[in-house]
Write a protein that binds this DNA or RNA. Structure first.
Lengths: 116, 116
DNA sequence: GCGAAGTGCAACTAACGGTTGCGCATCTTC
DNA sequence: GAAGATGCGCAACCGTTAGTTGCACTTCGC
């Protein structure tokens, strides 16, 4: 079930700061590390490191123009990540439903035994 | 959008080992740290630390019986976690769709301009 | 040419996931 | 009931990572 999860990709979006960075990048299309850090509670260097991580798993791509380095989201890869979130969520949901179902049938069995 | 995400809860399920532990716990209902570690590539102590983390965010609960300490999943809390996965996924998905929509309308505008 | 802006690199700290080693409680068995 | 086995918790240690500060380098604007 959840064996098809890419741990590196998941870990990349597991960090709260990186998730907020992705939110910001999705909103503005293309941002520099300095610009991102102005809207985050961490320094530019921390943002740069996170961008490196995101780049390593293919969630963002960089393009240098002059002294500026613009980052943008790789939409296909983010879509893949979203799919994995959905997969794991669905798997757990199914398990929870099954447990709920078992609990109910036990309850029914108990109810059926009472009048006896 | 994703501002309603509980960072601690998210980080708890962000770790691959902890995710697998939840899978195992969901399958068996109730397990001890030692028993879990036998099916995981880490030591009992590592598992114990993870269980502490999971307990702290309310994803599992422990009950001591003799020398054994049984852990079970808190279904309501896991359901909350699943809901957050779905929320973030949906938010990103919506953003991606909007971007795709914008890209298409730009393309259409370009197409419309061509015959001119 | 000079200062400002943007970046990258290096060193350092704190927290975390992991390990080993040890001591303590509890269960089992003779 | 003493002896060994089983399960657990605590402490020390190691490597990685998220974060910091400080500095040197390039590029832009005047």
């Amino acid at each position: 079930m959840s064996l098809l999860v890419d741990d590196d990709l998941w870990s990349a979006i597991g960090d709260p700061t990186r998730r907020r960075m992705l939110d910001l990048l999705l909103g503005e299309g293309s941002r520099t590390a300095t610009s991102l850090s102005e809207q985050l509670p961490v320094t530019r260097q921390a943002v740069a490191k996170h961008l490196l991580v995101l780049d390593r798993v293919g969630l963002v791509h960089a393009s240098t123009a002059g002294r500026e380095r613009q980052f943008r989201v790789d939409q296909a890869q983010l879509a893949r990540a979203v799919a994995q979130l959905a997969d794991v969520g669905a798997a757990w949901d199914a398990r929870l439903q099954r447990i709920k179902g078992i609990a109910e049938s036990i309850q029914q069995a108990a109810d059926a035994r009472k009048p006896d």
